[in-house]
Nucleic acid binder design. Structure first.
Length: 423
RNA sequence: GGAGAGUUAGCAGAGUGGUCGAUUGCGAUGGUCUUGAAAACCAUUGUGCCGCAAGGUACCGGGGGUUCGAAUCCCUCACUCUCCGCCA
């Protein structure tokens, strides 16, 4: 959520940045600034009314103390009209505040000035490519066939006990999952992140804090009886750990990592996008989150991107990094890098990580601030990224490393899997 | 799931209708003293909103109500603790 003061003070700049995602905020801004003026005026009126009411109450109290009940009763009658108008003004104030908020939640984050203008993924800017594309022989199998051949993943059994998009991993398939999770967590620990194991159910306040609610609720599974959602990403839990906090500047940066199972309804997806592991309703992901001083956030975004690149290097997967154009970025992000690995048999790039700086957009909703000595509290910057999401990594590992003898495990992982080939 | 007790500032913990945004202790910050430190003493020590400022106003778990006046009384929700039941 953008802040009204920013909109008021940096109107032109924000309008320009929002143009990068082809969002015309002009009318929103005009209306918000006008409503905010109204809000201030109402606040002033209400405050002075309440002041007089408080004064009267005090006087009445003193009169009773002195035993002058008659005069006190007389004064009481004076409060009636003041109370009535203060109630009206309070209603008006709340309505105005609601109106402002209802407009603010419709406005996406303002993209960083370096974000390429554009409307779709074709306009993204490839900023890095790394690794050789695999040169697979004719007849190389896609991962879902390899998964069946080596009895690693059973999609039908998953459909039987739950539904489509909920695979069952078994044998070396299950062990590979466990290995990847440990590998990713250990690397994050080495990089200075604190490990967390959060719940996977989230309450509506948390969903609202990171921006999944109010309008992306269709993407989440809802447990109606308990008014909770299954978390779509550990970003929600980790970032919300600090919701509502006022941090001391010495506490920054805060670096967190968590492995969590993630749940997404993915309504409307179909075809080759959902084949095999390409898109699941339940999947495993290791997520890194940082709460940062605003001065550092963009340097840190680069660091995080380099960190994730390093993981892919160690897994010996060919990948590319895209700086997302305005139209392809998420609602809450100011700048996003997507990491894509090449899946040799499908001959497709698969997104395995998305690393974003949200600037103050989430912090504002979360009311998450920090304070430097003798200065006013101000909003932190939040960042997060997958490091990494498992299914597509597994897809690429299986496809790219298939040989006539079996599927080779990259050297960095062998200590975790306990085997070097799937055969 | 049933019964009961709680939720107050960074923490501990008073306050059961009236100058209470809140006693006190600890912690923290600044100062006095000291060669330095400790101790002692003094002062300061929450956040939002309106305002150039003075100041005003709101917040005692969340929401609502009673009252001239609510941390205090009532309703409701959430959470914590104790006991019973159930259970990995």
């Amino acid at each position: 959520m953008l802040s009204v003061n920013d909109i008021r003070n940096n109107t032109e700049e924000l309008l320009g940045r929002l143009q990068l995602r082809r969002f015309d905020a002009h009318n929103y801004f005009t209306e918000i600034i006008e409503l905010d003026g109204k809000r201030k005026k109402t606040q002033t009126e209400l405050d002075s009314l309440l002041a007089s009411l408080n004064q009267l109450a005090k006087e009445i109290g003193e009169l009773y103390k002195k035993g002058n009940a008659e005069e006190a009763e007389k004064r009481k009658s004076e409060t009636a009209t003041i109370k009535e108008s203060s109630k009206d003004l309070t209603d008006k104030l709340h309505k105005t505040e609601e109106a402002i908020k209802s407009l603010l939640v419709l406005i996406p984050n303002a993209p960083h000035t370096s974000v390429p203008k554009g409307s779709a993924s074709k306009d993204n800017e490839i900023v890095k490519e790394s690794g050789e594309l695999p040169n697979l022989k004719e007849g190389a199998l896609p991962h879902w066939e390899l998964a069946e051949k080596y009895e690693l993943i059973d999609f039908e059994l998953g459909a039987k006990i739950t539904g489509s998009g909920f695979p069952v991993y078994r044998g070396k398939g299950a062990r590979l999952q466990r290995a990847l999770i440990s590998f990713f967590l250990d690397k994050a620990l080495d990089a200075g992140y604190t490990e967390y194991q959060p719940p996977v159910l989230i309450n509506p306040d948390s969903g609202y804090g990171t921006g999944q609610l109010p309008d992306k609720d269709a993407q989440m599974y809802l447990l109606e009886a308990d008014k909770m959602y299954l978390s779509p990403t550990a970003e929600v839990q980790l970032t919300n750990l600090y919701r509502g906090d006022l941090l001391k500047s010495e506490q920054l940066p805060i670096k967190m990592v968590a492995y969590a199972q993630c749940f997404r309804r993915e309504a409307g997806s179909y075809g080759k996008d959902v084949k095999g592991l390409n898109r699941l309703h339940q999947f495993d992901k290791v997520e890194i989150v940082q709460i940062q001083h605003p001065d550092n956030s963009y340097n840190v975004l680069e660091e995080m991107t380099d960190y994730v690149s390093g993981l892919l290097d160690q897994l010996e997967l060919p990948y590319r990094v895209a700086k997302l154009c305005g139209g392809d970025m998420g609602f809450t992000s100011a700048l996003t890098y997507d990491m894509e690995v090449y899946s040799g048999a499908q001959k497709r790039w698969l997104e395995v990580s998305s690393i974003s700086n949200f600037e103050t957009f989430q912090a504002h909703r979360l009311n998450l601030r920090f304070k430097e000595a003798d200065k006013k509290a101000c909003l932190v910057h939040t960042l997060n990224g997958s490091a990494l999401a498992l299914p597509r990594i597994v897809a690429a590992l299986l496809e790219n490393n298939q040989t006539t003898e079996g599927i080779k495990i990259p050297a960095a992982l062998i200590a975790y899997t306990g085997f070097d080939i799937i055969d």
